[in-house]
Amino acid sequence: MLRALQLEPEKCTGCLQCEMACSFENEGVFNPAKSRIKVFNFHDQGRFAPYTCTQCDEAWCMHACPVEAIVVNQDTGAKEVLDSVCVGCKVCTIACPFGTVNYSHDSGKVIKCDLCGGDPWCAKACPTGAITYVDIDSTGLGRMRAWAQQGVPSAASFNAPMEKDVQTYGQAQ
């Protein structure tokens, strides 16, 4: 079964454990600046949102690379950068519509999420379940369930399933 990272911003608290886990696994250092996943803080709205590579099937980065340094890992579906081939031309960083491929000044190569070979550390480190690693064909299941619940009599209120407190604090309630 192929799996994908599922990001649920409404559960994110902005702790950056994912960024440290990512940089530790990939670079051996606790360093948000070297993380392939980033958490954004929308202060005025009181919202945090983690964001990283979605592993497009027809990946722009992969097709744009002039030296074929970005390849598909058949086990995980991840588009991985081959450091030994990458020449640091940065064309992929331009091609990616989502900004999730970035250049690393220290190594002279680009870096992007590679799903940690099928065991993504960001998901393991997330304390609230805002980042999970789930069946790639069912990433919408949780949200479908939440909306479906609205049709169930006695569901609390129309907006409730999307509200973070219901999801995060479900156990306590």
């Binding site: 608290t13 902005g14 950056l16 454990q17 440290m20 009181g46 945090f48």
Partner: peptide, 9 residues
């Protein structure tokens, strides 16, 4: 609106 964490919390 929400709860929030400090760094690493």
């Amino acid at each position: 609106t929400t709860n929030a964490a400090c760094f690493a919390c």
